[in-house]
Design a protein around this nucleic acid. Structure first.
Lengths: 123, 123, 123, 123
DNA sequence: GTGGTCTAGACCACC
DNA sequence: GTGGTCTAGACCACA
């Protein structure tokens, strides 16, 4: 796993795990990889993963059974989705519109985007 | 000027100045506000502005006449536009598509975006 | 470490570190002294060292592992050597020739230089 | 005339004028270009030239006749030569030897330098 | 007044 | 402990 410099590593790990939960890779009640396992997988210090898990636990996205591991919490996908969608409409979309205007991005430039959307809607 | 926590202040100042150049507020050859004037304007330390200007100078977006000030460099708008568009198509757009898919954003959700695009194109 | 007035301190620190890398004092992959440790060693402010390291990182001479430290980058010695030699042949040598001509420096004046060269070559 | 960023502009102007005196372009007693003329020639502020001339006057390399102009002083070439040669042997040459060693510059690399020297000596 | 560099000290995120 | 950023304030060279 590669990291950008702009965001914190622990944040990127959290985002990645949330993505996997949204994708159904981990379902509600599933055990997520242990701190040390996860750390080994992605090649970071286990403290960093621990911090990620602690943070996600605080957001009630995963829960901890002592001595056993961390598990995907009830309603985790919904909770993640809600936060993400809010961020999307509040920050991502407005920023995007500003950029499109400033950079003179045209409709044809984002044709692939539209196509993608159509497919998504027709499912 | 208000700052977000996610990016460095000096980066946001740079982005802001680039935006103004793209908008034509500062044309090629124009003097941009002096380091200390700019610092006073936006309420930051002059070192922070200095860092911004040094960085922009390295990117050949502004240039320096010693003891006189910083000036918008030749081709600065084109250069900014090129970088910004590249970032857009390489990072922003793919990320956006991933998010749309993941968050199940629908066509109607982004109707405002489409409308904006149409207007922009018909100008 | 003593500094000349002609160049910036941060530049002299950079040159010094590059010299050490060329001399093999720090090999590829080695950790270089931490920003604050280096600052203490040579009696300057940590910001000054930080500026040096940031610059050297931009030139891909050292690289950074977050929260751990700076390390001598792959190919750093070659890269330094290339830059230094280019500077030598493009600036130092022509300047030298001009000066020799202008100042009427004679062969015997630079005998020590020649001797040094012979020794170097015969090694 | 182009300027490097490493040295002060006024210093570079002074060096340039001294070079011309050594080359005999301006002989002892000759009038050197007026402050404003010189400023126009090389495209800098006249204050900068004034500072150069004041400095050179302090070093007794040029002298001022009020209302008429600046003139190359008695012994100016000798004086310049003395300073320059001292700088050469005290700083330039030792630095050069260090660099040659560090950069593994060989005899053949500096063959042009040697050739130049021979020619110079045989004159 | 304008850039440029440095110091001192603080605070944060991350390991 | 390690990098990274920012502030405050000072001093210098230059125009």
């Amino acid at each position: 796993m590669e990291f950008k410099n702009s965001k914190g590593i622990f944040q990127q790990i959290a985002d990645n795990l949330c993505d996997r939960i949204l994708l159904g890779e981990y379902s509600v009640g599933d055990k997520v990889p242990s701190v040390r396992e996860q750390a080994a997988n992605i090649g970071v210090n286990h403290n960093t993963v621990m911090r990620t898990y602690t943070e996600l636990q605080r957001e009630e996205i995963i829960s901890n059974k002592r001595g056993i591991g961390f598990f995907v919490a009830e309603d985790a996908p919904l909770r993640i989705l809600a936060v993400r969608r809010q961020e999307f409409f509040e920050f991502t979309l407005p920023d995007l519109i500003d950029q499109i205007e400033l950079l003179k991005i045209t409709k044809s430039d984002v044709k692939t985007l539209i196509t993608k959307l159509e497919e998504n809607e027709n499912k």
